Structures are given as structure tokens and as C-alpha cells.
Simulated assay, not measured.
Amino acid sequence: RRIIYNRASADPDGKPWSERKAYVWWDPEQKKWTGHDVPDFIADRPPDYRPPEGATGVAAISGIDPFIMQADGKAWLFAPAGLVDGPLPAHYEPQESPLRNPLYRQQHNPVRQIIKSKENPLQPSGDEPGAEVFPYVATTYRLTEHHTAGGMSRFLPYLAELQPAMFCEVSPELAAERGLEHLGWATIVTARNAIEARVLVTRRMTPLTVGGRTLHQIGLPYHWGQNGLTTGDAANELAHLSLDPNVHIQEVKALAVDIQPGRRPRGPALRVLVKGYQERAGITEKTGTEA
């Protein structure tokens, strides 16, 4: 499903709100929902359907209640129970961000779950001293060719040919700022580790203007590793262990990093590089652990 609740793209009568953006709609002749996607709704339930008294479950959802993952078919602004950090959603900056939270003083989710160790030091964030050592934002993503995971995909010759090497996506502006060459090598560093990747200079990674400053992004695909027909460093080597307090999922979609041209060091020299970043950022056991 490309859009969850795509029944909401049509008005209560089942007609698209906008012909230009028509997505799914009710076809009165075929007596079913149709369109450019699989309808996320009961396929043969007409817009004028109203549930009988005493109906329960899916049968209680009317033809104008599109949010079928909720028991009443209505949109919910908040979850009334069950969330550790609820009921209303709030914006917090990621565990490691080069920016202060623009909305209020609380930088991070105060009830996030942190797993810390010597191998997993946390970085300063926002305007804290040392945050400038990691000035860029890395965002991770999956690749179509690594449909399930790299452990399977990298062993298939056709998929390995389509994705032959671990790479990082950077904008032309960031490439110029850091001396990165298209198809050359780059080293991406956090307080945990450093990885290397081939450079893909692309307009896809648009520089952002946030808080009056330019913020560059670095794209890092998942699912590379040391085994298979194509091998390479893994983006997860850079990540910390700050977890969502409800489902305990690791926060790895956005993290603060540095990037330099060239391949990463090997052996003990790699640890020397990372240790140098830790010292420049003034990282201690308490860094990043504020409530």
C-alpha cells in the first residue's frame, strides 16, 4: 500500500477530492472501490453504508469512516492509553543532532531508552560543546535491490551487479565543501566507529536551511556487510543505541556524523581516528544521557 488510509483521498460520496490527485474512488457501476492503488478499505462497501445498531468490529465502520485500523473508523489525534510518552505526539530532536529543538527547551525524548557502554558512547547534541565535531546529518534507507536484507541480496549475482558497492549520497555543495569526488572514497565518522563508502554526488541530497544555517545530509543505504558477492562497511557501525520507549526500536534513521575524503584507516589506526573524534568532542560517560 503506497498510502495508508487511501479511502481518505475521496470525499464522503466516494468522489476524488481533486481530479488531478485522484487516487481511489467508488465505482457505482462495478459497486466497488477502485483507482490507482489497492483500496485500504472494504472493497465493496459503498459510501452510503451505515452500520446497523449493535454492529461490532469491521461491520461497525461506515462508508465514510476510512481509518479502518481504528475500532471506530475515525482518525485519532492522540492515543488514549498505552504510550509511555503519550498521549499527544511531540517533536524531539534525534539523540544526536547538530541543531537545538526549535519548539521548546526539551531536546530529546525524556523517556527514551538508552543503552550505553564503552563501545557505544553518545555524542553531544544541539548547541552543546563538541557538537560541532559532527556537523552533518546521516540518514539511512533501504535499497530496492536489497529487498529483504543484504544477507540474502548480496549473494545473488543479478542483484549484486545492480548494487556493486556500499556508497554514500552527498550533494554537490557538500562534495565541494569536503573535497569529495564522484565515485571516489569517503570516510564517515561517529563516536562509535568510522566506515568507508563510494561517493555518489547527486542533487537528491538537497542541502537544508534550518535555523538560519545550511545543514547537509548524507544518505547511507543499509544491508552491506563483509560476506557475499559484493561486500562493504555497514551503516549500522556508526549508530548509537537510543531506543523508542514504546516498542524499543533503535533510532538509526538520523544521526550526526562527520565526513572526510579517502578510505578509512585499518587496524589500530581506525581506533585512533575514532578516539581522536571522541576527545575533540569532549565525550564522557554522561554525554547525551540527560533526561
Score class of each variant (00 low, 15 high):
252 V>S: 04
244 D>P: 00
226 Q>P: 13
71 A>K: 13
121 P>F: 09
178 R>F: 10
48 D>N: 06
58 V>N: 00
15 K>Q: 09
102 P>Q: 15
134 F>T: 05
182 H>S: 14
229 L>Y: 08
144 T>D: 08
206 T>W: 06
143 L>T: 04
255 L>G: 03
188 I>V: 14
78 F>W: 09
94 P>I: 02
251 E>S: 13
142 R>H: 11
287 T>M: 07
178 R>G: 08
210 V>G: 08
145 E>M: 06
241 L>S: 13
192 R>D: 10
234 A>M: 08
277 Y>C: 04
141 Y>S: 10
41 F>Q: 13
70 Q>C: 05
46 P>E: 02
34 T>C: 14
203 R>V: 15
135 P>Q: 08
202 T>A: 11
213 R>L: 04
172 P>G: 14
162 L>Q: 11
30 Q>W: 01
141 Y>D: 09
253 K>D: 12
235 A>H: 04
284 T>W: 07
53 E>K: 15
16 P>H: 13
14 G>A: 01
137 V>L: 03
119 E>Y: 07
206 T>H: 11
86 G>E: 12
42 I>D: 12
275 K>N: 14
128 E>V: 02
32 K>L: 11
197 A>I: 07
219 G>D: 03
201 V>C: 05
12 P>F: 00
172 P>Q: 13
46 P>F: 05
158 Y>M: 11
34 T>D: 15
282 G>Q: 01
98 P>V: 12
93 E>N: 06
244 D>H: 13
242 S>T: 05
40 D>W: 10
179 G>P: 13
190 T>I: 06
44 D>V: 06
210 V>F: 12
283 I>P: 03
11 D>K: 14
216 H>M: 04
200 L>W: 09
143 L>R: 01
21 K>V: 04
100 R>V: 10
59 A>T: 01
55 A>Y: 04
262 G>L: 05
126 G>C: 03
203 R>D: 15
222 Y>E: 00
13 D>H: 08
32 K>D: 01
78 F>L: 11
234 A>R: 10
109 N>H: 01
212 G>T: 02
265 P>V: 02
229 L>G: 03
190 T>C: 06
41 F>I: 10
107 Q>R: 05
36 H>R: 15
73 G>A: 13
273 L>E: 09
191 A>F: 00
84 V>I: 11
269 A>H: 02
262 G>D: 05
186 A>V: 06
9 S>H: 10
139 T>C: 03
33 W>M: 06
38 V>E: 15
164 P>S: 02
1 R>V: 00
222 Y>Q: 07
2 R>C: 10
80 P>A: 12
214 T>Q: 12
